[in-house]
């Protein structure tokens, strides 16, 4: 995991550094003289070899210093970065609260009713929502809930001087459009693993032991059928906490995603490095946690084989 992160950070650094366009030029603008450019490059250490700059950057990063923004001159990235991360985390948690119970419930339902009408409806809905890019479902949601029935705000911008907590209603539409995407993904997974489990020998054995249907589903099937779904939810955690660029852009939500996009557009190298690395970090961590969870919930891994 540490190795992955180290390699990743280097790749990201190189990738971002080879961006066309000169940082010094970006700072000083088109009218800068060659002398002032050279001076600035010198003071920013831009002339050092790549690996020295990487070492300097990574060293600072480990100490929690994300550097200074290029675009917003003089602003420490730390001061804006973590607030945006906080917003993204709140949005992600809201979405989780929406979609996890929903998709698990309908996934299990579709799995148990496999082949029946209920299943067809849930499966089609899941397929449709899963296929839609977030901004498309977002636009549909906006059209319905903000324009036709003006219940919720079209954008999720926090008015200056206020905090997210005073504007919780702006979370609803973004979280719903995330739910749309994840619902299809998770419920279909849950459905198929439920079907696999319900067709297994041990479920047949449990039914033919005379156990009632509900009990078989909840006690015998669910625990095994949840395992693959938990992996899916876990693997998407990274996307949920760091990759919501599209949703945040659509709603203008002040989070990590829109920050990353603006860093690209403004060629704000240090900011871009910080956010991409952070997103990757979340990805790696969430994969790691998922693996641990999986191992913990699965007795076949938790208890190594040991014969009596």
């Amino acid at each position: 995991m540490v190795l992955t992160l180290a390699v990743m950070s280097f790749i990201i650094f190189v990738l971002v550094e080879i961006m066309p366009g000169d940082a010094a030029q970006t700072v000083l603008g088109q009218s800068a003289t060659p002398e002032s450019l050279a001076a600035l490059r010198e003071s920013m250490g831009l002339d050092d070899p790549l690996y020295i700059r990487y070492g300097r950057w990574a060293g600072a990063f480990i100490h929690g210093d994300l550097g200074e923004s290029l675009y917003m001159r003089g602003v420490q990235i730390n001061t804006i970065f973590w607030r945006k991360v906080g917003h993204s985390v709140i949005l992600a948690l809201t979405a989780l609260v929406f979609y996890v119970p929903l998709s698990l419930f309908f996934g299990v339902l579709a799995g148990v009713k496999a082949g029946k009408l209920t299943d067809s409806i849930i499966s089609f809905f899941g397929l449709a929502t899963m296929a839609l890019p977030e901004f498309v479902s977002g636009i549909i949601l906006i059209t319905v809930f903000a324009i036709k029935i003006p219940l919720l705000p079209i954008t999720s911008i926090i008015p200056i001087g206020e905090t997210l907590w005073e504007n919780l209603n702006i979370l609803v539409l973004p979280a719903l459009s995330i739910t749309f995407v994840m619902f299809g993904y998770v419920s279909r997974m849950q459905r198929s693993s439920m079907i696999t489990v319900m067709n297994s020998d041990y479920i047949r054995a449990a039914v033919l032991k005379g156990m009632p249907q509900g009990y078989v589903i909840f006690r015998h099937a669910l625990k095994n059928a949840l395992l693959p779904t938990i992996t899916i939810i876990g693997m998407n955690m990274g996307w949920l906490f760091g990759g919501l660029i599209v949703v945040e852009t659509l709603f203008g939500f002040p989070g990590l995603g829109s920050l990353t996009l603006s860093a690209i557009k403004t060629r704000d190298v240090p900011l871009l490095e910080a956010s991409v690395l952070f997103i990757t970090f979340i990805f790696v961590i969430s994969t790691f946690i998922t693996d641990m969870m999986y191992a913990f919930l699965n007795p076949r891994i938790r208890f190594k084989r040991g014969e009596v």
Binding site: Y202, R204, K223, N224, L297, N298
Partner: peptide, 13 residues
């Protein structure tokens, strides 16, 4: 009683 005892027992209970 079934042919395959391993798959007839629930792995997580």
């Amino acid at each position: 009683v079934y042919q395959n005892p391993y798959s007839s027992l629930n792995p997580s209970l």
